[in-house]
Simulated assay, not measured.
Amino acid sequence: MNSRTTDLVTPTELTARSTDATAPTLIDVRTPAEYETAHIAGSINIPLPLVQAHAEQLAGDLDGPVVLVCQAGGRARTAHAALTAAGAQQLTVLDGGIAAHTAAGQPVRRGRPRWALERQVRLVAGSLVAGSVLTSLRFPRARFLAGGVGAGLATAALTDTCAMGAALAKLPYNRGGRPVTVDDAREALRS
C-alpha cells in the first residue's frame, strides 16, 4: 500500500467485516468525551494526540486488520499517516467516520450527550467572526479578528489540521471521565 493513499471502508462494509472471522480492530481516535458520547461497540479509544506521540509503540502492537474511526474522517486519516509511517500495515479508515456510520443506520453505543469537536469549532469560529464584525462598527480594528479567524479556517482546510479544535479538545468538557494513557491503549490492543 502506498503510504500517501488511505484505504477507506464504508459503514456497511465495516458491519459486514465485523461479523467475519477476521474482524478488524476498531481504533477510535476522537477525544475521550466524544468517545463516551457515541462509539462503535468493541472499539478502542486512543485519542489522536496519543497516536501521534506513540505511533511506533502502537504500530508494534497492531496485529491484523485495523479500522481507524473519528467523527468525520479527518483525524482518522491523520492517525493512518502516523501509524503507516511507523510501519503499521492493514490500516483502513471508516469513510465519513461516526457521522456516516450513524447516518447509515449502523448501531452505536450512546452515553452522555455532547457536541462533536467539529461542531464546537464551528460555534466558536462563527461567534468570533460575528462578534468582531459587530464590534467593528464601534471599533474598526476589530474586523481584523474576523480576518484572522477566516485565515485560520482556510489554513485548517489546506493542512487538514485545526489549531482551534486542538485547543478545544483540552477543555474539561471534552476530556471525558478518565484520560487514556499509552499503557492503557497498548494493553487494550494486546487483549
Rank of each mutant, 00 (worst) to 15 (best):
G64T: 11
M1H: 11
P113D: 09
D183T: 15
E34H: 04
R75M: 09
I46T: 02
D95E: 09
A33Y: 02
S132G: 04
L158F: 08
G73C: 05
R109F: 03
A41H: 08
G111Y: 00
G97H: 01
P24C: 02
S127R: 06
L145T: 00
A76S: 13
G150I: 04
K170F: 12
T102R: 13
E56V: 15
T6V: 15
I98Q: 00
G97R: 00
R17T: 12
A21H: 12
A33V: 06
A41W: 06
T15Q: 14
Q89K: 15
P107K: 01
A104Q: 07
M1S: 14
A59H: 04
D160C: 04
L137C: 08
D28G: 06
P11L: 03
E56C: 10
H80Q: 14
A33L: 04
A33Q: 00
G60D: 09
S132V: 03
S3F: 13
V108W: 03
R30W: 07
S127T: 13
S18P: 08
R110N: 14
L189H: 13
V67N: 02
L48S: 11
V133T: 03
G176N: 05
A72M: 14
R30P: 08
V51M: 10
D160M: 06
T12D: 13
A104D: 05
L50T: 10
H39V: 03
H54I: 00
Y173Q: 14
T19W: 07
A185R: 06
A154T: 10
L134M: 01
Q90S: 13
L123F: 12
C162H: 01
L117P: 03
R75T: 05
A81W: 10
H39Y: 07
P179L: 12
I46N: 01
A154M: 11
A166M: 14
T102N: 06
H39G: 02
P113Q: 10
A185Y: 06
R114L: 13
A166Q: 15
L128K: 01
T161V: 05
T78Y: 10
T102K: 14
A23H: 10
L145K: 00
D95A: 06
D20G: 11
Q120N: 14
L14W: 02
R178E: 15
R30A: 09
R119F: 11
A59K: 04
I46Q: 02
A86L: 02
D28K: 06
E56M: 11
L48I: 13
V124S: 04
T10Q: 06
L117E: 03
L50W: 05
G87W: 04
G111H: 05
E36L: 04
T25W: 00
W115H: 15
C70Q: 09
R122N: 11
G147T: 04
G177S: 15
S132P: 08
V108Y: 01
R110I: 14
E13R: 02
P24V: 05
G177I: 15
S3P: 15
S132C: 05
R138C: 10
T19D: 06
G148A: 07
G177C: 15
T15I: 07
T161S: 07
R119C: 08
A33D: 01
V149D: 00
D7I: 11
P107W: 01
A88E: 03
G60T: 07
L83C: 01
T181L: 15
A157T: 05
T92L: 11
R114K: 13
P179F: 08
L83T: 02
N45Y: 03
